[in-house]
């Protein structure tokens, strides 16, 4: 199975989830209204979209340089420190504890949540906030995403860290790639195995959940859905042996910072304060 078929499968599953959720959570009427005046909505959120796109483009275009700086220039391998810190704090590493509950069903569930659930969780609020009367929430979301990526990617250059499964296969199992090796083709496209601290899976998911809480009056149903998904994803990253507990904590902190910045400023404000 090559990359193309893995991507196609992801696209089909996530599209189905998005359509279902859009009909249930947003409702057909709102969707139709939104589709009728796409133009001003797009204009309103053009700036945050551009900012996010710029960060993603910079990341994509500088992967080689970033990896060289990470390894050759800075070379801060914090993997042993993460392991030792958790050894100090807990009698048994939280990842190992989670993995004692291992079962094929649980592994399938967490693998599904980690790949498909995550893609859905990030994409759905974009659709949902796009269908609102104002574009404020969408701008907040996009700005928060941008902040997440900016800080997260900076950390990835600053710190080399490998996840538990790569650190010690006798203590921790790499459940995702043992069970679903093909997923590596997909994750290889967007990530390196040294990009562990903090967990962007956690931070982006938590960002969506926190914002769902703040917009609970508009989409009450979205709060429990995103909450369950976000927490499942955070647990999944540890259960699957991909992230340390510290990464998840750092990811949650990053989510709080991002939401705070997203709520307090808009791109327009930022530009005004700089200009």
């Amino acid at each position: 199975m090559a990359l193309a078929s893995v991507v196609l499968q992801l696209a089909l599953v996530v599209a189905t989830m998005l359509v279902t959720a859009a009909l249930v959570v947003i409702g057909p009427r709102r969707l139709v209204t939104a589709l009728l005046d796409v133009r001003w909505r797009l204009e309103m959120c053009l700036l945050p979209v551009a900012a996010l796109a710029l960060v993603l483009f910079l990341r994509w275009s500088t992967v080689d340089i970033a990896v060289r700086i990470e390894h050759r220039v800075l070379g801060n391998n914090i993997t042993p420190q993460l392991f030792e810190l958790e050894q100090l704090l807990f009698p048994v590493n939280p990842v190992a504890v989670l993995q004692t509950f291992q079962s094929p069903e649980l592994t399938s569930f967490f693998a599904f949540v980690y790949i498909y659930g995550y893609a859905f969780l990030l994409l759905f609020p974009i659709v949902a906030y796009f269908a609102l009367e104002t574009m404020d929430d969408l701008s907040t979301l996009l700005l928060a995403f941008t902040v997440n990526y900016t800080i997260g990617l900076a950390c990835y250059v600053l710190f080399i860290a490998y996840g538990p499964r790569n650190f010690d296969p006798l203590l921790f199992e790499g459940l995702l790639y043992d069970g679903f090796p093909q997923m590596r083709r997909l994750t290889n496209q967007v990530n390196q195995s040294t990009n562990v601290f903090p967990s962007l899976h956690t931070s982006l998911s938590m960002t969506v959940f926190f914002l769902a809480w703040l917009t609970r009056e508009k989409y009450p149903l979205w709060v429990p859905v995103s909450g369950v998904l976000a927490i499942s994803i955070a647990v999944a990253t540890m259960y699957l042996g991909i992230h340390w507990f510290s990464d998840v904590v750092a990811g949650t902190v990053l989510a709080l910072i991002s939401v705070y910045i997203g709520r307090s400023y808009s791109i327009r404000d930022l530009r005004r304060s700089i200009g």
Binding site: R165, N166, F167, D168, P169, L170, L171, G174, Y177, S193
Partner: peptide, 13 residues
Amino acid sequence: PADDDAMASMIVS
């Protein structure tokens, strides 16, 4: 890392 050579990683463990 274990991804590249699981046995080396286990020996180190």
